[in-house]
Amino acid sequence: MFNRRVWLGFALAPLLPSVLFLIAFHLSDLRQAAFLLGFSLLFSYLPSLLFGIPLVVFLKSRKVLSIVSVVLCGSLLGAITLYMFGFVSSMPLSSPKGIAPELREVFSGGVLGALVSTLFSLIAGFPLFNSKAR
């Protein structure tokens, strides 16, 4: 169904948010860094596999598989995923996080989703605009 490049994209692209979180938080405690890495990998790989694979199959079946279509859908999925990440991580901390997402969460998640889906699309070798030949 998928070639090696697509599987390589699914394997590598979800690492990007975890690496960015580690850089952004620059944690000196190894335990905190390991916890953050594990938690962010879970929230990066799980949506990528649960939603990314069906999304690529759907876009391919509609003959609209391209970098642009994957990035647009990835931005939306990224916004939803980052919101869920914040909501779930606030529960054990008894943080007063509301159900309505904040604009910066939506924007940040959209940017992360766009970055991951762009990296994935480039690794997978998708065309920029149209995949009628695929």
Rank of each mutant, 00 (worst) to 15 (best):
M1E: 14
M1V: 13
F2V: 11
R4M: 13
V6Q: 08
V6W: 05
V6R: 09
W7M: 11
G9I: 03
F10K: 00
A11P: 08
L12D: 03
L12V: 14
P14N: 04
P17W: 03
S18R: 04
S18I: 08
S18V: 15
V19G: 07
L20E: 06
F21N: 07
F21L: 06
F25A: 14
F25N: 11
S28E: 14
S28F: 11
L30K: 12
R31N: 09
R31W: 11
R31D: 15
Q32L: 15
A33W: 08
A34C: 11
F39G: 09
L41G: 04
S48M: 11
S48G: 15
L50R: 04
L50F: 08
F51L: 12
F51Q: 05
F51V: 05
G52L: 00
I53F: 11
I53R: 01
P54S: 08
V56E: 12
V56H: 12
L59I: 02
L59P: 11
K60H: 14
R62W: 03
K63D: 13
L65N: 06
I67D: 09
V71C: 00
L72Q: 04
S75D: 05
L77K: 05
Y83Q: 10
F85N: 04
S90H: 12
S90W: 06
S90D: 09
M91S: 12
L93I: 07
S94P: 07
S95L: 14
P96M: 10
G98A: 13
G98V: 02
E102R: 14
E102W: 05
E105I: 06
G110R: 00
G110P: 06
G110A: 02
V111E: 01
G113D: 03
A114F: 02
V116F: 01
T118F: 05
F120L: 03
S121Q: 03
L122K: 08
L122N: 03
G125E: 12
G125F: 01
F126H: 02
L128G: 00
R134K: 15
